[in-house]
Structure formats: C-alpha cells, structure tokens
C-alpha cells in the first residue's frame, strides 16, 4: 500500500493561487450574476481580496498551515467588501484553528478543517441549505468529500467528487428563492438566477481539486 499523500503548505498555496486565477478569469461573470440579484460587486470584491492574498503569499514565508490559513482569513476580512469578506474570511480563520501548528495534514484532517470552515460560514450567516447562498454549494461538497474519503478514495478523487457536488449545488440555486443576503430583498424575484456566492464557492472547490490532483500526480 502506498503511504497516504499529505496535504502540504506548498499545495495549499498552489490552491489559493489557482483560485485567485479562476476568480480573475470569471470576475466579470461573478459580477454579472450579482448584478441580477445583488449589488454587482461580488466578482470585483473577490478579485481584489484574492489578489491581495496572492501578493502576501508571494512575499511572506510561512511554515505553519494554521498561520497560513489565518493570514488568508484576516486579509479577506479587510479586503473583500460585502458579506463575502467576513464569510470567506471565517472559512479560512476556522481552517486555521484546526490546522494550527501543523505543517502537513492527512486528507481526512484537511477535510475536517474545511468542514470546520464551512460550519463557520453556516453559523455566521445563519444560512441553511436552500436559502440560495454559498452554503448550497459548500455543504454538498463537504458531504461528498467525507463520503469519498470514507470509501477509500484518494484526495484527488475525493475533491473531484466534492467539486461535482458543489457544481450541482451551485446549479440547484437557480430555481431557489433567496432567504439570506441582499438577494432575499427580491423575494420571489430572486428565483431563476444562479447565486453568485454559490458560484464563487464552487470555483473554490474546483480549484482545490485541480491543484491537489496536479500535486498528487506529480508525487507518483
């Protein structure tokens, strides 16, 4: 049996940088989605926040995953306007608490850290599945991630399953009525539009699958 591949600081930085790329590519799309049911700033805000994160990562040497995630979280709190700053910030701050003092994580530890982060988002926004928020992409992703790891999948395969679940969750927000966030002000008129927060959340999970699968293949 091959030893369990570990999640390392370098692969986490690769993940975040990849996500920053994806946000930049899709900035206009995210903003357009937000223009339909929100205040047309989600793509712009996320791009600004993750460019700031990318710049800091390039200049700071970190050898503790807890410190890494916490730094990302704090940067997002300050740099991303709207609710997505505190929410994505909380995700990484909570991940940082779980990963504190560690240089590597097993796939299960990584999944637990992400789950703690998603739980943080859920509590912070008190959003439930079905409220048409990022939780609708993240909850199915976490469930799929844990399920796949329990079934013995590699981290790459498990993240691919999580990304598929997040995508389905993202698309499922289209027919939903928003009960949280700015979109909820629209009431039934929020129906028929894909939630921008669920979209950026899907991109985050997809980026994780892409960057960690690349790392897994390189280590073979």
């Amino acid at each position: 049996m091959t030893p369990t591949p570990m999640v390392e600081i370098a692969s986490m930085i690769a993940w975040i940088n990849r996500y920053a790329d994806r946000i930049s590519e899709h900035q206009a799309w995210l903003t357009a989605l937000d223009a339909e049911i929100g205040d047309a700033d989600h793509g712009i805000n996320m791009q600004r926040g993750f460019e700031e994160v990318r710049m800091r990562l390039a200049h700071e040497h970190v050898d503790d995953l807890g410190v890494l995630f916490k730094g990302i979280g704090m940067t997002l709190l300050s740099k991303v306007g709207g609710a997505s700053g505190p929410l994505y910030g909380t995700l990484f701050l909570r991940m940082g608490m779980v990963a504190a003092g560690k240089q590597t994580l097993t796939p299960v530890e990584f999944a637990n850290a992400v789950a703690a982060g998603v739980e943080g988002i859920r509590q912070r926004g008190s959003a439930r599945p079905g409220d048409k928020t990022m939780v609708d992409a993240l909850m199915p992703a976490i469930i799929a991630l844990h399920q796949a790891l329990d079934d013995g999948a590699t981290l790459c395969a498990a993240l691919q399953a999580a990304a598929a679940a997040a995508e389905a969750g993202m698309k499922a927000t289209i027919p939903m009525q928003a009960y949280k966030g700015r979109a909820s002000y629209l009431g039934p008129r929020s129906i028929g539009h894909q939630d921008p927060g669920a979209t950026s959340a899907f991109l985050l999970v997809q980026s994780a699958a892409e960057s960690l699968c690349a790392a897994e293949h390189n280590s073979d």
Binding site: L77, S78, G81
Partner: peptide, 12 residues
C-alpha cells in the same frame, strides 16, 4: 477602495 466605496471591515 474608491471604486467600491461601500462596505464594512471586521478588523476596523
């Protein structure tokens, strides 16, 4: 950010 003047910052 002068282009996105509205927002709140938990740290602040």
């Amino acid at each position: 950010n002068p282009f996105q003047p509205f927002g709140t910052d938990p740290v602040a």
